[in-house]
Design a protein around this nucleic acid. Structure first.
Length: 277
DNA sequence: TGGAATGTTGGAAC
DNA sequence: CGTTCCAACATTCC
């Protein structure tokens, strides 16, 4: 469910509840005062990137579906909801395995709407400025940075970097200005491609890089590695995607392999057995 | 079948 | 004390 466009779909499906009053709330989240919700009307349903925001008169419920979250309208899953809202006529809105937080009511004071790639208030200019302030950052990390591209996720990263033919280990500051601009523009373009394809249940069919084995352009095998600070899966073509090395890595001689690239393998072993105490 | 994944976070480690 | 790192969380799919 998770990337920004999926949350826009959630918001659209939830629009029916705007203006309605919660008569009962429950769930297994520890971050919600359920009793306080009863009697409160839903003032607005909003989103910021991957955050789904339920605006009440005196607070906001922030839902993040993380990797595995889900929701149902007028249905239940065979599991305890993390948050369940029931309305006058018995209609219900249930959320499962998500993160719920209660926020103060003034959302404009808490969110930079210009960062949300799905928002009417999205600003390419502001995103570009944030990028240029972080020249050392790798593009594989920048494309996942929610302060810059709120709502973008790993699918965005792989698809956009393939589209603009930039290697994931390129440094933001090493990209020519026109490439930086292209990156920002394509993040926004892909966001709406994603939304359209997701609604039509054809999102996966349109993946060119994410989870793919072969480059659709030159047909050599994609490389797959967990790169950057985020260690998230990258699928990329060494032939088609150009590596723009950072100043520090750029050597006058040699092909300029990225210095300390993503780790080679195996993360630490699983945790030791829980202590009894 | 088990490992990995559209993600974030709290707290440990340095 | 600020910054970085990583394990935990939990469900679904291949």
């Amino acid at each position: 469910m998770p990337e920004g466009p999926s949350i826009v779909i959630l918001r659209e499906e939830a629009a029916r509840f705007a203006g309605r009053t919660i008569v009962r709330a429950g769930g297994n989240s520890k971050a919600v005062d359920y009793a306080a919700l009863a009697g409160q009307p839903i003032v607005a349903l909003r989103s910021w990137g991957k955050h789904f925001l339920i605006q009440l008169p005196d607070r906001v419920l922030r839902i993040h579906l993380l990797m595995f979250g889900s929701y149902r309208i007028n249905e239940r899953k065979d599991a305890e909801p993390r948050l369940s809202l029931v309305f006058e006529d018995g209609e219900e809105f249930n959320f499962y395995t998500c993160s719920v937080k209660t926020l103060p009511p003034d959302l404009d004071a808490q969110y930079d709407w210009s960062a949300d790639v799905m928002s009417d208030q999205w600003s390419a200019r502001v995103a570009l400025k944030k990028l240029r302030a972080r020249p050392e950052m790798l593009v594989c990390d920048a494309t996942l940075d929610q302060e810059i591209f709120s709502g973008a996720g790993n699918i965005f990263k792989n698809e956009v970097l393939f589209r603009i033919r930039v290697h994931p280990l390129s440094a933001v500051g090493a990209l020519p200005a026109a490439k930086q601009r292209e990156l920002v523009e394509q993040m926004r373009v892909y966001a709406f491609d994603f939304l359209r394809w997701k609604k039509a249940f054809v999102l996966k069919q349109h993946w060119l890089a994410h989870t793919k084995r072969l480059c659709p352009r030159c047909e050599i095998p994609f490389l797959k590695a967990h790169l950057g600070k985020t260690h998230r899966r990258s699928f990329y073509c060494e032939r088609c995607q150009k590596l723009y090395a950072s100043g520090a890595d750029a050597r006058p001689t040699g092909p300029g392999r990225p210095a300390a690239s993503g780790r080679t393998k195996a993360r630490a072993p699983a945790r030791p057995a829980a202590e009894s105490r």
